[in-house]
Write a protein that binds this DNA or RNA. Structure first.
Length: 505
RNA sequence: GGUAGCGUGGCCGAGUGGCUAGGCAGAGGUCUGCAAAACCUCUUACAGCGGUUCGAAUCCGCUCGCUACCUCCA
């Protein structure tokens, strides 16, 4: 009967293909297919992985919030990602790590896949609908290669298969995503040796012949080998989302060459574009420099959560990190600093305190204040409008702080609670809770048994302290409050005479 | 060199041709046994120089500074 939310709040997304904001139209609503390039699992998850996962988690959550039915595919790269893609001479990243640590490649894959998932769970990132691996889709990748060969955009050379970029660029529109022209690439490329197999240095491998010592190898029509890095995403997105799907995402650093190659492969194999909307999030910098493996300045998530890193003055909770990431728009660069993390930590406390206060409001409508009701309703409306404007979490959070101030005012009785009508109060309640919890995913951890025990103990101390206060034994009451504070529990004496508490770490 | 982008108040970070977010930090106040939290008030910015305009931080040009991609990276 009622129209779905996505019709009421049309979504604008910045499409990297056109470099413009476009109105999002799903191919087959309410279904939405979304693919995100996940990690290559050969090392510990770091801040950059967190940003990618959190940014797209919120996109996934908001689409779902708007009543789309989203199939969200986020892959795990466990083969084919070489150290030097262009020369094709680099070692496979997973293989190299396995060799260095004297482990089987699949042990490396298993170890870092679990670490990645564990870190994301702490960050309250929802699991994707499908999390496929490259090694689990060798057959599909071979099929894509065969299709590209049949269409004449690839060639076999000594047991390897390469994408014929020059031919493709002559006949199709290459470089639409990155704005790069093949001629520039060729003229700007460095001299490389041992490229006899390739017709052009920028032809990329679809299938690589395995050298005798190479461990990760599979049978194929071209002999034993392994798939090229760009290919897996084409094969897996096609399998689970179709030849053309709605949204393809990834980090800005993947735009070229990875995503450009995906577009070329898809056109060459299926004569279709893979995705209607390409969404790229910006990267995290540290002291203004890109965080990267090669610079050695990256901070792993474990280090961030424990504080054990030379650059960190303290530990930061996963929710603080999540909030820090979401305070900036996904297309803006984010520079890491302790000051910024600390500010985020405090801001998050303010927001979650307001959320707790909301639950304490006992609303009994009386005479309505129209100005106030209109104001609250407008704030609620803005939450949708900002998120529907290219997932602007920064503006959403600003509005949530404003609603939080209203909630505090209502609780302090500086604003008359009864002057809100029932609909407005309900809407404020659902919007505030929904956007903080369901959309931004900033909800506090669920309480378990030990949590309940802890809360019982705190309540006991509060009772003892309040008795001391009633007896004007402030030495005792202050001692309880000070010691609880040093344990990370902040007591607050309310005007009404009761005492509440919150956790400060 | 080619391509893309950025420069906002003490800090972080939105946004936009006129209504000039938000958070953190700082100052003062209300409340409180004292605190904490909350609330109120204050500090008012858009690199520089030109141009378009009734009006620009927002559009255009130039200058300076910074970053990313063009090699692997989220």
């Amino acid at each position: 009967m009622s129209q779905p939310s996505y019709d009421r709040y049309p979504l604008a997304v910045t499409n990297s293909l056109s470099r413009k904001k476009e109105i999002f139209k799903a191919i087959n609503p309410p279904l939405v297919g979304m693919y995100l390039c996940g990690p290559t699992v050969y090392g510990d998850p770091h801040l950059g992985h967190a940003r990618s996962a959190v940014n797209f988690d919120v996109i996934f959550r908001y689409l779902t919030f708007l009543e789309y039915k989203v199939r969200y595919v986020r892959n795990i790269t466990d083969v084919g990602h070489l150290e030097d893609e262009v020369a094709g001479t680099g070692e496979d990243k997973v293989s190299k790590k396995a060799r260095l640590e004297k482990l089987e490649p699949m042990e490396i894959v298993q170890l870092y896949t679990y670490r990645y998932r564990d870190a994301l769970r702490l960050l309250n990132v929802l699991p994707p609908s499908v999390e496929p691996t490259a090694t689990g889709h060798i057959l599909e990748q071979i099929e894509v290669i065969q299709s590209i060969l049949e269409h004449g955009y690839a060639y076999e050379s000594d047991g390897s298969v390469y994408f014929d970029l020059e031919k493709y660029a002559q006949q199709k529109d290459y470089g639409q995503l990155s704005g790069k022209v093949l001629d520039d690439l060729i003229s700007g490329s460095r001299q490389t040796e041992g490229l006899d197999e390739k017709r052009s240095p920028h032809d990329f491998a679809l299938w690589k012949k395995a050298s005798p010592e190479h461990i990760m190898r599979w049978n194929s029509p071209w002999g034993e080998g392994f798939p090229g890095w760009h290919l897996e995403c084409t094969a897996m997105s096609t399998k689970y989302l179709g030849e053309t799907f709605d949204i393809h995402g990834g980090g800005l650093d993947l735009q070229f060459p990875h995503h450009e190659a995906e577009i070329a492969q898809c056109h060459a194999a299926f004569h279709k574009q893979p995705a209607n909307y390409w969404i790229h999030h910006n990267l995290i910098t540290i002291d203004g420099q890109k965080m990267s493996k090669s610079q050695g300045n990256f901070i792993t998530l474990e280090q961030l959560f424990t504080g054990e890193h030379p650059l960190l003055v303290q530990a930061y909770s996963p929710m603080t990190v999540r909030f820090f990431i979401l305070q900036a728009h996904y297309r803006s660069p984010v520079d890491f600093s302790n000051e910024a993390l600390q500010a985020a930590e405090k801001g998050l406390v303010r927001l979650t305190n307001a959320l707790a206060t909301l639950e304490k409001l006992d609303h009994q409508p009386a005479e309505a204040d129209e100005v106030l009701n209109r104001e609250i309703n407008q704030l609620c409306e803005q939450c949708y409008l900002h998120m529907s404007d290219d997932f602007n979490t920064a503006r959403l959070i600003a509005v949530l702080f404003e609603i939080g101030s209203k909630i505090n005012g209502l609780y302090n009785q500086q604003i008359t609670l009864s002057s809100l009508d029932s609909d407005t109060f309900q809407r404020m309640h659902n919007t505030f809770q929904g956007f903080i919890g369901e959309v931004l995913g900033l909800n506090a951890e669920k309480s378990d048994d030990s949590q309940q025990q802890k809360e019982g103990l705190i309540q006991l101390l509060i009772d003892i302290r309040n008795k001391a206060r009633a007896d004007k034994d402030f030495a005792t009451s202050d001692q309880i409050r000070d010691q609880l504070k040093s344990l990370g529990v902040q007591l607050k004496d309310e005007k009404s005479g009761g005492t509440t508490y919150s956790f400060t770490n």
